[in-house]
Amino acid sequence: MPLILLSGFPSSGKTHRAKQLVDYFQGRIDANASQPTPDPRIARLRVHRIDDTSLGLSREAYREARTEKDARSTLYSAIRRALGRDDIVIADAMNFIKGYRYQLFCEAKALQTPSCVVHIGTPIDTCRSNNRLLLGDDTVDGGYPDDIFEDLVRRYEEPNGMTRWDSPLFTVIYDDPSPPCDAIWDALVGAEGKAKLVKPHQATVLKPASESNYLYELDRTTQEVLTHIQTWQKDHPGEEGGQISIPEAELPIELPASPLSLSHLQRMRRQFITLNRQHTLPKSRIRDLFIDYLNTNFA
């Protein structure tokens, strides 16, 4: 069943909107149960809200790259476990990295279930004020330390409805009374409980390794990506990080501020090959997965 990714600045009101969605979806399920002839497909639905707090993740996890990576991995695993035929999963987190949203989009598509992104459009100054109030309130989970808040705002990658992994995209302005719940339900569950079936394409289906040239393609494609990184670093000496567009790839590479040595890149490449040598993937999927892997480990 559907995956709903909330995305927005820290302290933008995501949890408030997520709870509104939970109440709405649960209300539709309960209303169906009270009908003389309930729709069995809707009757089976369960609603899950997954957030940092429920997983025991601290705001301090976003202070360092290593702990942030672990936090994102914990969220990713929890969302992946909850996704199922009869489950509506609401991911109440910043989901601020487009590569991360792309990975979750692929997980949903592989399960033949729809997904959407709900962008919480709250101005930065309002988020900053909310965050300071939360920092001073001992009765709630609290806000982010100022330095972490500003860093997360700086790195936030806003959803783009023109990309398939961020669509359909629903934007909720900060003073809207509620999200467009009816539209979200219709897009994901269906006006009559009959949402369009999502068919997995080749890029989201893993198959046992069988092609004789698969390892060659895996080796060649990943080396091409490294070559692009090395060429960019050579052509942009002294620059602190940067975004690299890779031919035939949907996502760019987001380089960290510190230059990457060839030995470090090759080590990450070998790790990726080891993880994926048992599966046969289309060439384009190898490239995108490798870029996702690099971006996640660069963070």
Rank of each mutant, 00 (worst) to 15 (best):
Y76N: 10
E248Q: 08
L275Q: 11
L83S: 11
L226R: 05
T296E: 15
P36S: 06
R63N: 10
Q20F: 03
L55I: 01
R85L: 10
N130M: 00
R164Q: 13
S245C: 06
D141Q: 09
C127V: 04
L188F: 03
E107V: 05
D292G: 14
I90M: 05
V22M: 06
K69A: 10
G161Q: 02
R17Q: 15
P259Q: 03
L275C: 08
D141N: 10
N160M: 07
A110I: 00
S34H: 15
I286S: 10
A191D: 09
G190T: 13
I244D: 13
I97T: 09
K98H: 08
L289V: 07
I286F: 05
I184Q: 02
V89E: 01
V117P: 04
S212H: 12
R154L: 09
T113Q: 13
A43N: 07
T280F: 01
F290Y: 14
E107W: 02
K109R: 15
T37W: 12
T126F: 09
K98G: 06
K14F: 01
P38L: 00
D146H: 11
P247L: 04
R66D: 15
H279E: 11
I246Q: 06
Q35V: 02
Q230E: 12
P168G: 13
I291C: 08
H16C: 05
N95K: 05
D186G: 06
L169E: 00
D175Q: 12
L55F: 01
A249N: 02
H264N: 12
L55Q: 06
P114D: 01
R155E: 12
L289D: 15
Q271F: 01
T231M: 14
H228W: 13
I229G: 03
R132N: 11
Q35K: 12
S77P: 03
G161T: 05
T74M: 04
K207Y: 04
A257P: 07
T221P: 04
L152N: 00
I88M: 13
D70P: 03
I88A: 12
G99L: 03
P256V: 03
A61S: 11
G142W: 01
T74K: 10
T113Y: 02
F170Y: 15
Y24H: 07
Y62W: 05
F25R: 03
S245V: 05
V118N: 03
F149V: 09
V198T: 09
S261T: 14
F290P: 07
E211P: 07
W165I: 14
N295A: 07
A78P: 04
D151A: 15
P237I: 00
I244T: 13
S212F: 10
V153K: 10
S115E: 05
